[in-house]
Design a protein around this nucleic acid. Structure first.
Lengths: 157, 157
DNA sequence: TATTGTTATACTCTATAACTATA
DNA sequence: TATAGTTATAGAGTATAACAATA
Protein backbone atom coordinates (compact mmCIF):
# COMPACT_ATOMS: atom_id res chain seq x y z
CA UNK A 1 0.00 0.00 0.00
CA UNK A 2 1.20 3.46 -0.89
CA UNK A 3 2.29 6.13 1.57
CA UNK A 4 0.11 8.84 3.05
CA UNK A 5 2.16 11.46 1.22
CA UNK A 6 1.56 9.85 -2.17
CA UNK A 7 -2.18 9.82 -1.60
CA UNK A 8 -2.22 13.50 -0.75
CA UNK A 9 -0.31 14.21 -3.92
CA UNK A 10 -2.70 12.11 -5.99
CA UNK A 11 -5.67 14.02 -4.59
CA UNK A 12 -3.97 17.23 -5.67
CA UNK A 13 -3.16 15.90 -9.15
CA UNK A 14 -6.72 14.75 -9.68
CA UNK A 15 -7.97 18.14 -8.64
CA UNK A 16 -5.64 19.92 -11.03
CA UNK A 17 -6.14 17.66 -14.05
CA UNK A 18 -9.42 19.46 -14.71
CA UNK A 19 -7.45 22.14 -16.52
CA UNK A 20 -6.32 19.61 -19.10
CA UNK A 21 -9.85 18.30 -19.49
CA UNK A 22 -11.13 21.82 -20.06
CA UNK A 23 -8.48 22.49 -22.67
CA UNK A 24 -9.48 19.33 -24.52
CA UNK A 25 -13.09 20.44 -24.35
CA UNK A 26 -12.28 23.75 -25.96
CA UNK A 27 -11.23 22.20 -29.23
CA UNK A 28 -14.53 20.39 -29.84
CA UNK A 29 -16.74 21.33 -32.80
CA UNK A 30 -19.67 23.66 -32.45
CA UNK A 31 -22.77 22.08 -30.89
CA UNK A 32 -20.72 19.20 -29.52
CA UNK A 33 -20.04 19.70 -25.81
CA UNK A 34 -17.77 17.20 -24.04
CA UNK A 35 -20.73 15.18 -22.83
CA UNK A 36 -21.95 14.66 -26.38
CA UNK A 37 -18.50 13.58 -27.46
CA UNK A 38 -18.52 11.03 -24.66
CA UNK A 39 -21.85 9.59 -25.73
CA UNK A 40 -20.77 9.23 -29.35
CA UNK A 41 -17.43 7.70 -28.43
CA UNK A 42 -18.97 5.06 -26.18
CA UNK A 43 -21.61 4.11 -28.76
CA UNK A 44 -18.83 3.71 -31.28
CA UNK A 45 -16.70 1.54 -29.03
CA UNK A 46 -19.40 -0.65 -27.53
CA UNK A 47 -22.04 -0.58 -30.26
CA UNK A 48 -25.78 -0.33 -29.92
CA UNK A 49 -26.98 -0.23 -26.32
CA UNK A 50 -29.74 0.90 -23.97
CA UNK A 51 -29.89 4.07 -21.89
CA UNK A 52 -29.12 2.24 -18.69
CA UNK A 53 -26.01 0.64 -20.14
CA UNK A 54 -24.77 3.96 -21.42
CA UNK A 55 -25.34 5.58 -18.03
CA UNK A 56 -23.33 2.76 -16.48
CA UNK A 57 -20.43 3.33 -18.88
CA UNK A 58 -20.54 7.10 -18.40
CA UNK A 59 -20.72 6.59 -14.63
CA UNK A 60 -23.39 9.26 -14.34
CA UNK A 61 -27.05 9.15 -13.36
CA UNK A 62 -29.51 8.04 -16.02
CA UNK A 63 -31.39 11.33 -15.75
CA UNK A 64 -28.27 13.14 -16.90
CA UNK A 65 -27.58 10.55 -19.55
CA UNK A 66 -31.08 11.08 -20.85
CA UNK A 67 -30.40 14.73 -21.52
CA UNK A 68 -27.05 14.13 -23.17
CA UNK A 69 -28.65 11.52 -25.39
CA UNK A 70 -31.48 13.89 -26.28
CA UNK A 71 -28.91 16.48 -27.33
CA UNK A 72 -27.15 14.19 -29.79
CA UNK A 73 -30.43 12.68 -31.00
CA UNK A 74 -31.84 16.13 -31.81
CA UNK A 75 -28.83 16.71 -34.03
CA UNK A 76 -29.35 13.43 -35.84
CA UNK A 77 -26.12 11.88 -34.58
CA UNK A 78 -27.86 8.86 -33.06
CA UNK A 79 -31.13 6.98 -33.45
CA UNK A 80 -33.37 5.82 -30.60
CA UNK A 81 -35.42 2.77 -31.48
CA UNK A 82 -37.82 1.04 -29.12
CA UNK A 83 -36.34 -2.18 -27.79
CA UNK A 84 -38.51 -5.02 -29.16
CA UNK A 85 -37.65 -7.09 -26.09
CA UNK A 86 -38.75 -4.44 -23.58
CA UNK A 87 -40.99 -1.59 -24.63
CA UNK A 88 -39.77 0.57 -21.76
CA UNK A 89 -36.28 0.66 -23.24
CA UNK A 90 -34.82 2.38 -26.24
CA UNK A 91 -31.86 1.15 -28.23
CA UNK A 92 -29.28 3.80 -29.07
CA UNK A 93 -27.37 3.57 -32.33
CA UNK A 94 -24.97 5.86 -34.19
CA UNK A 95 -26.14 7.32 -37.50
CA UNK A 96 -23.86 8.01 -40.49
CA UNK A 97 -24.02 11.66 -39.48
CA UNK A 98 -22.85 10.68 -36.00
CA UNK A 99 -19.94 8.79 -37.46
CA UNK A 100 -18.92 11.89 -39.36
CA UNK A 101 -18.85 13.86 -36.13
CA UNK A 102 -16.75 11.11 -34.59
CA UNK A 103 -14.23 11.40 -37.41
CA UNK A 104 -13.93 15.10 -36.70
CA UNK A 105 -13.60 14.48 -32.98
CA UNK A 106 -10.86 11.95 -33.50
CA UNK A 107 -8.98 14.31 -35.77
CA UNK A 108 -9.15 17.19 -33.32
CA UNK A 109 -8.29 15.11 -30.27
CA UNK A 110 -5.25 13.52 -31.84
CA UNK A 111 -4.06 16.76 -33.42
CA UNK A 112 -4.31 18.56 -30.08
CA UNK A 113 -2.57 15.83 -28.12
CA UNK A 114 0.11 15.44 -30.77
CA UNK A 115 0.79 19.15 -30.43
CA UNK A 116 0.93 19.28 -26.64
CA UNK A 117 2.59 15.90 -26.13
CA UNK A 118 5.10 16.00 -28.96
CA UNK A 119 7.90 14.90 -26.64
CA UNK A 120 6.01 11.93 -25.16
CA UNK A 121 6.96 8.46 -26.31
CA UNK A 122 4.38 5.88 -27.25
CA UNK A 123 5.28 4.00 -24.06
CA UNK A 124 4.74 7.11 -21.92
CA UNK A 125 1.23 7.66 -23.22
CA UNK A 126 0.50 3.96 -23.02
CA UNK A 127 1.61 3.82 -19.42
CA UNK A 128 -0.51 6.80 -18.47
CA UNK A 129 -3.49 5.21 -20.19
CA UNK A 130 -2.96 2.01 -18.25
CA UNK A 131 -2.68 3.75 -14.91
CA UNK A 132 -5.76 5.86 -15.54
CA UNK A 133 -7.74 2.78 -16.56
CA UNK A 134 -6.56 0.99 -13.45
CA UNK A 135 -7.47 3.97 -11.30
CA UNK A 136 -11.01 3.93 -12.65
CA UNK A 137 -11.25 0.20 -12.09
CA UNK A 138 -10.03 0.54 -8.52
CA UNK A 139 -12.72 3.08 -7.82
CA UNK A 140 -15.23 0.67 -9.26
CA UNK A 141 -18.76 1.93 -9.50
CA UNK A 142 -18.35 5.57 -8.56
CA UNK A 143 -21.89 6.61 -9.20
CA UNK A 144 -23.77 8.10 -6.28
CA UNK A 145 -25.13 5.71 -3.74
CA UNK A 146 -28.18 6.27 -1.59
CA UNK A 147 -28.02 6.97 2.14
CA UNK A 148 -25.03 9.24 2.59
CA UNK A 149 -24.29 10.15 6.16
CA UNK A 150 -24.98 13.76 7.06
CA UNK A 151 -21.33 14.74 7.50
CA UNK A 152 -20.50 14.32 3.84
CA UNK A 153 -21.46 16.35 0.85
CA UNK A 154 -23.52 15.25 -2.15
CA UNK A 155 -22.25 17.72 -4.72
CA UNK A 156 -22.85 18.21 -8.38
CA UNK A 157 -19.63 19.25 -10.17
CA UNK B 1 5.91 10.73 -30.55
CA UNK B 2 3.07 8.46 -29.56
CA UNK B 3 0.69 6.75 -31.96
CA UNK B 4 -2.66 8.03 -33.11
CA UNK B 5 -4.37 5.16 -31.30
CA UNK B 6 -2.76 6.05 -27.97
CA UNK B 7 -3.93 9.64 -28.25
CA UNK B 8 -7.50 8.58 -28.88
CA UNK B 9 -7.34 6.36 -25.84
CA UNK B 10 -5.92 9.16 -23.71
CA UNK B 11 -8.75 11.44 -24.76
CA UNK B 12 -11.17 8.77 -23.63
CA UNK B 13 -9.41 8.21 -20.32
CA UNK B 14 -9.39 11.92 -19.56
CA UNK B 15 -13.08 12.09 -20.31
CA UNK B 16 -13.83 9.17 -18.00
CA UNK B 17 -11.62 10.19 -15.11
CA UNK B 18 -14.29 12.68 -14.07
CA UNK B 19 -16.07 9.85 -12.26
CA UNK B 20 -13.11 9.45 -9.94
CA UNK B 21 -12.94 13.19 -9.34
CA UNK B 22 -16.63 13.26 -8.47
CA UNK B 23 -16.23 10.40 -6.04
CA UNK B 24 -13.39 12.23 -4.32
CA UNK B 25 -15.58 15.32 -4.14
CA UNK B 26 -18.34 13.41 -2.40
CA UNK B 27 -16.25 12.73 0.69
CA UNK B 28 -15.53 16.40 1.43
CA UNK B 29 -16.86 18.03 4.60
CA UNK B 30 -20.02 20.07 4.61
CA UNK B 31 -19.64 23.61 3.19
CA UNK B 32 -16.38 22.65 1.52
CA UNK B 33 -16.92 22.04 -2.20
CA UNK B 34 -13.98 20.78 -4.29
CA UNK B 35 -13.12 24.29 -5.39
CA UNK B 36 -12.72 25.44 -1.79
CA UNK B 37 -10.52 22.46 -1.04
CA UNK B 38 -8.36 23.44 -3.99
CA UNK B 39 -7.97 27.00 -2.76
CA UNK B 40 -6.99 25.91 0.74
CA UNK B 41 -4.55 23.28 -0.51
CA UNK B 42 -2.73 25.71 -2.79
CA UNK B 43 -2.46 28.36 -0.09
CA UNK B 44 -1.00 25.73 2.20
CA UNK B 45 1.55 24.53 -0.33
CA UNK B 46 2.63 27.87 -1.75
CA UNK B 47 1.96 30.21 1.16
CA UNK B 48 0.50 33.70 1.11
CA UNK B 49 -0.27 34.99 -2.37
CA UNK B 50 -2.39 37.34 -4.45
CA UNK B 51 -5.60 36.57 -6.31
CA UNK B 52 -3.89 36.61 -9.67
CA UNK B 53 -1.27 34.10 -8.55
CA UNK B 54 -3.93 31.80 -7.17
CA UNK B 55 -5.90 31.99 -10.41
CA UNK B 56 -2.72 31.07 -12.26
CA UNK B 57 -2.14 28.02 -10.03
CA UNK B 58 -5.78 26.93 -10.29
CA UNK B 59 -5.65 27.46 -14.07
CA UNK B 60 -9.04 29.13 -14.01
CA UNK B 61 -10.19 32.66 -14.74
CA UNK B 62 -9.72 35.22 -11.98
CA UNK B 63 -13.43 35.97 -11.93
CA UNK B 64 -14.07 32.39 -10.90
CA UNK B 65 -11.19 32.43 -8.46
CA UNK B 66 -12.71 35.51 -6.87
CA UNK B 67 -15.89 33.65 -6.06
CA UNK B 68 -14.11 30.60 -4.67
CA UNK B 69 -11.98 32.83 -2.49
CA UNK B 70 -15.05 34.70 -1.25
CA UNK B 71 -16.59 31.38 -0.23
CA UNK B 72 -13.67 30.33 1.95
CA UNK B 73 -13.18 33.86 3.30
CA UNK B 74 -16.83 34.03 4.42
CA UNK B 75 -16.23 30.88 6.46
CA UNK B 76 -13.14 32.34 8.10
CA UNK B 77 -10.76 29.86 6.52
CA UNK B 78 -8.58 32.56 4.93
CA UNK B 79 -7.82 36.22 5.46
CA UNK B 80 -7.69 38.85 2.71
CA UNK B 81 -5.40 41.74 3.54
CA UNK B 82 -4.72 44.68 1.27
CA UNK B 83 -1.30 44.40 -0.35
CA UNK B 84 0.80 47.31 0.98
CA UNK B 85 2.79 47.29 -2.26
CA UNK B 86 -0.27 47.60 -4.52
CA UNK B 87 -3.59 48.75 -3.16
CA UNK B 88 -5.48 47.02 -5.97
CA UNK B 89 -4.33 43.62 -4.73
CA UNK B 90 -5.25 41.56 -1.73
CA UNK B 91 -2.98 39.06 -0.05
CA UNK B 92 -4.59 35.72 0.77
CA UNK B 93 -3.51 33.82 3.86
CA UNK B 94 -4.75 30.70 5.67
CA UNK B 95 -6.23 31.17 9.15
CA UNK B 96 -5.90 28.64 12.00
CA UNK B 97 -9.47 27.67 11.22
CA UNK B 98 -8.48 27.07 7.61
CA UNK B 99 -5.65 24.83 8.74
CA UNK B 100 -8.10 22.76 10.75
CA UNK B 101 -10.19 22.24 7.63
CA UNK B 102 -7.06 21.21 5.77
CA UNK B 103 -6.30 18.59 8.40
CA UNK B 104 -9.75 17.16 7.91
CA UNK B 105 -9.39 17.23 4.13
CA UNK B 106 -6.09 15.42 4.29
CA UNK B 107 -7.53 12.76 6.56
CA UNK B 108 -10.52 12.13 4.30
CA UNK B 109 -8.53 12.15 1.07
CA UNK B 110 -5.96 9.67 2.31
CA UNK B 111 -8.53 7.44 3.97
CA UNK B 112 -10.59 7.28 0.78
CA UNK B 113 -7.63 6.61 -1.47
CA UNK B 114 -6.22 4.04 0.95
CA UNK B 115 -9.55 2.23 0.78
CA UNK B 116 -9.94 2.27 -3.01
CA UNK B 117 -6.25 1.80 -3.85
CA UNK B 118 -5.35 -0.77 -1.23
CA UNK B 119 -3.63 -2.97 -3.83
CA UNK B 120 -1.53 -0.16 -5.32
CA UNK B 121 2.16 -0.04 -4.47
CA UNK B 122 3.87 3.16 -3.48
CA UNK B 123 5.68 3.07 -6.82
CA UNK B 124 2.39 2.73 -8.73
CA UNK B 125 0.89 5.82 -7.13
CA UNK B 126 4.16 7.69 -7.48
CA UNK B 127 4.35 6.87 -11.15
CA UNK B 128 0.79 8.01 -11.76
CA UNK B 129 1.51 11.24 -9.92
CA UNK B 130 4.56 11.85 -12.07
CA UNK B 131 2.72 11.22 -15.31
CA UNK B 132 -0.19 13.45 -14.31
CA UNK B 133 2.19 16.23 -13.31
CA UNK B 134 4.01 15.87 -16.60
CA UNK B 135 0.73 15.92 -18.50
CA UNK B 136 -0.22 19.20 -16.87
CA UNK B 137 3.19 20.64 -17.63
CA UNK B 138 2.98 19.57 -21.25
CA UNK B 139 -0.32 21.37 -21.60
CA UNK B 140 1.29 24.43 -20.08
CA UNK B 141 -0.98 27.37 -19.59
CA UNK B 142 -4.37 25.86 -20.31
CA UNK B 143 -6.41 28.83 -19.31
CA UNK B 144 -8.69 30.30 -21.94
CA UNK B 145 -7.07 32.46 -24.55
CA UNK B 146 -8.72 35.30 -26.41
CA UNK B 147 -9.67 35.15 -30.08
CA UNK B 148 -10.97 31.66 -30.64
CA UNK B 149 -11.91 30.84 -34.19
CA UNK B 150 -15.60 30.37 -34.80
CA UNK B 151 -15.40 26.63 -35.50
CA UNK B 152 -14.44 25.77 -31.94
CA UNK B 153 -16.41 25.87 -28.77
CA UNK B 154 -15.80 28.08 -25.76
CA UNK B 155 -17.49 25.95 -23.14
CA UNK B 156 -17.82 26.14 -19.43
CA UNK B 157 -17.66 22.67 -17.87
C1' DT C 1 -4.09 53.90 -20.42
C1' DA C 2 -3.34 49.45 -18.24
C1' DT C 3 -4.04 46.28 -14.45
C1' DT C 4 -6.27 44.00 -10.16
C1' DG C 5 -10.14 42.34 -8.57
C1' DT C 6 -15.45 42.06 -8.25
C1' DT C 7 -20.02 41.32 -9.99
C1' DA C 8 -23.69 40.03 -13.42
C1' DT C 9 -25.00 36.84 -16.77
C1' DA C 10 -25.01 32.62 -19.31
C1' DC C 11 -23.77 27.90 -20.21
C1' DT C 12 -22.31 23.03 -19.01
C1' DC C 13 -22.57 19.29 -16.02
C1' DT C 14 -24.58 16.50 -12.33
C1' DA C 15 -27.92 14.81 -8.58
C1' DT C 16 -32.54 14.27 -6.49
C1' DA C 17 -37.29 13.75 -6.87
C1' DA C 18 -41.56 13.24 -9.18
C1' DC C 19 -43.69 11.26 -13.03
C1' DT C 20 -45.09 8.04 -17.12
C1' DA C 21 -45.12 3.73 -19.24
C1' DT C 22 -44.15 -0.98 -19.19
C1' DA C 23 -42.71 -5.54 -16.86
C1' DT D 1 -44.67 -3.73 -7.07
C1' DA D 2 -40.53 -2.88 -9.59
C1' DT D 3 -37.93 -1.06 -13.47
C1' DA D 4 -36.64 2.06 -17.81
C1' DG D 5 -36.61 6.39 -19.05
C1' DT D 6 -38.04 11.51 -18.96
C1' DT D 7 -38.54 16.00 -17.01
C1' DA D 8 -38.28 19.67 -13.40
C1' DT D 9 -35.54 21.72 -10.12
C1' DA D 10 -31.39 22.90 -7.68
C1' DG D 11 -26.49 23.42 -7.05
C1' DA D 12 -21.48 23.53 -8.46
C1' DG D 13 -18.12 25.02 -11.84
C1' DT D 14 -16.44 28.05 -15.43
C1' DA D 15 -16.15 31.93 -19.14
C1' DT D 16 -17.22 36.56 -20.92
C1' DA D 17 -18.20 41.20 -20.28
C1' DA D 18 -18.87 45.30 -17.74
C1' DC D 19 -17.34 47.74 -13.88
C1' DA D 20 -14.57 50.00 -9.88
C1' DA D 21 -10.33 51.25 -7.93
C1' DT D 22 -5.57 51.85 -8.36
C1' DA D 23 -1.00 52.00 -10.96
Amino acid sequence: MAAHRQFEELARQLSAIGAVKREMGRILPQDCPPASAGVLTLLDRHGEMRMSQLAELLAIDMSVTSRHVAHVAERGWIEREPDPADKRSRLLRLTPSGREVLEELSARYTATLARYLNDWSDADVGHLNELLARLRTSFGDCRPRAHHDSTTRTPAE
